[in-house]
């Protein structure tokens, strides 16, 4: 059995761990608030953008001259999975649930005889996917050095994706990220971004707009931009989800540590009392013998 001193040391170390997880929880909570405001601030732009695009695209999608970003390449042989994850761990199932969704999609596509390529954003996703799909990862990007997520980061990613698309490296691009529902609910989501899926009926307005310049020219300007906007939105949602997941994971850890401390203290006190009783018996029986 462990000595009393060993037990004291163990309790102290559990307490130290609890302090760390508690601190991490509080840091995550304050960062979450910031991330959430950023995600909400980006929403009007993204919403408006998709409304305008679906307005114009509804008319243009059927025509033969539609841009490839909207109409696709006409094939769906090569798929690019753009997997956005966090840079750090200690956030519960946040990273692995995104990776799991991407992995399942990849295996399903491969079973159909399609070719799958990966573009990893974030260190954690790259590390997990590398084990299984090392040769299929065409690019990976670290956002570790980025302190404040800006639109430039998303533009950067969009540019890389577009360059590969124009080079004919893939036909369909799907974006994987975690949608932020609440602190306890983050939903891993797959969203097809190339070719763009136009949501029907969202912007079925009766107003007939005048376009300046022509519709197709606006569309060719807008589509690459929309890609960046969608990626930016995914990154922000991801960021908020990450801190939400981390916060609840650390909350759990703090609670578990508290439980552990309680149990250990109980055992410690029992042992201590047993030892005192034993010593008393020894003294008394010693005195009786005299």
């Amino acid at each position: 059995m462990a000595s009393l001193k060993d037990m004291r040391v163990r309790i102290a170390s559990t307490k130290a761990t609890q302090k760390i997880t508690k601190a991490m929880q509080m840091v995550a909570a304050s960062k979450l608030r910031r991330a959430q405001t950023a995600a909400e601030a980006a929403r009007p732009y993204a919403d408006k953008m998709s409304a305008v695009i679906s307005n114009i695209a509804g008319a243009a999608a059927g025509s033969p001259g539609a841009p490839a970003l909207l109409a696709g390449t006409g094939r769906d042989q090569v798929h690019l999975l753009l997997v956005c994850t966090g840079e750090r761990g200690l956030s519960g199932a946040f990273n692995s649930s995104i990776v799991r969704l991407a992995r399942e999609r990849a295996l399903a596509l491969m079973a159909q005889g399609k070719e799958v390529k990966f573009f990893c954003v974030g260190r954690k996703g790259y590390e997990q996917l590398r084990r299984q799909f090392d040769k299929q990862i065409v690019e990976h990007l670290d956002l570790r050095s980025v302190r404040q997520l800006g639109f430039v980061n998303a533009e950067d990613i969009a540019k890389k994706v577009l360059a590969r698309f124009e080079a004919g490296e893939f036909d369909v691009c799907t974006l994987f990220y975690s949608r932020f529902r609440s602190v306890i609910a983050q939903i891993p989501t797959a969203q097809q971004i190339i070719p763009l899926v136009v949501e029907e009926g969202t912007a079925a307005s009766t107003t007939s707009y005048e376009y300046e310049p022509e519709e197709d020219e606006i569309l060719t300007r807008l589509l690459p931009r929309n890609l960046a906007v969608q990626i930016f939105r995914a990154l922000l949602e991801n960021n908020a989800s990450f801190y939400g997941a981390q916060m609840s994971a650390m909350d759990n850890a703090t609670r578990n540590a508290g439980e552990m401390i309680r149990k250990q203290t109980l055992v410690y006190n029992r042992t201590r009392q047993a030892q005192i009783t034993k010593e008393l018996i020894e003294i008394i029986s010693g005195a009786e013998a005299v």
């Binding site: 305008v52 307005n55 114009i56 107003t207 007939s208 707009y209 005048e210 376009y211 300046e212 310049p213 020219e217 606006i218 300007r221």
Partner: peptide, 19 residues
């Protein structure tokens, strides 16, 4: 500042989408 020239918007302007 529109791509095809500057334009002003007042209340009641006709629906337009412009770059």
């Amino acid at each position: 500042p529109g791509v095809e020239g500057d334009f002003g918007v007042l209340a009641g302007h006709a629906p337009v989408v412009a770059a």
